[in-house]
Design a protein around this nucleic acid. Structure first.
Length: 149
DNA sequence: GCCAACGTTGGC
DNA sequence: GCCAACGTTGGC
């Protein structure tokens, strides 16, 4: 089983929102590297749900992949902010995965994440990191869960 | 294929 | 609101 970290802006969609709706298609990913990671996700993979652009930013909970990659419908919707005129249903460019809540964490702020030795090489903490879907090693995942338990 | 311009992300 | 970092676009 693989582990991941996925970012969401809590003003738009928070971990509490995921708990409330129970399942959510992860729409709006428009970055090829992030898309390619999502395509390798398998049902049951666990995900650190990270709040970005927040005060403070940090890890809010654990989610589970409940649906594997399939075309993100928002790319075909001209009214969506994620509409991509260059994509077509015959040859979809963007995928989403479906997430379900697994377990809330005691919030682990970015400041705290930076102090965790296991995360020293984690892409999340790399300078200039902007990737919204990040693979985690088993150790990295476990260290974040420990910090939030 | 290069690279400048531009848009977006995300911490602060 | 600012700004550094980075991805994408488009002219050449």
């Amino acid at each position: 089983m693989a582990h991941w970290l996925m970012k969401s802006e809590p003003d738009v969609f928070s971990y509490d929102d995921l708990v409330r709706v129970k399942r959510e298609g992860w729409d709006g990913v428009r970055n090829y590297q992030a898309r390619n990671f999502m395509r390798t996700m398998r049902k049951g993979d666990l995900v650190i749900f990270y709040h970005s652009n927040a005060t403070p930013p940090g890890a809010a909970g654990i989610a589970r992949i409940s649906g594997e990659a399939e075309p993100d419908p928002t790319q075909f919707d001209p009214k969506s902010k994620y509409f991509d005129p260059k994509s077509s249903p015959d040859d979809p460019r963007w995928d989403w995965v479906t997430l379900a809540p697994k377990k809330r964490l005691k919030f682990v702020s970015l400041d705290t994440l930076r102090t965790i030795p296991e995360l020293a090489n984690c892409q999340l903490l790399a300078r200039g990191n902007r990737l919204s879907v990040i693979p985690l090693t088993d150790d990295e995942f476990a260290a974040i869960v420990d910090a939030g338990s």
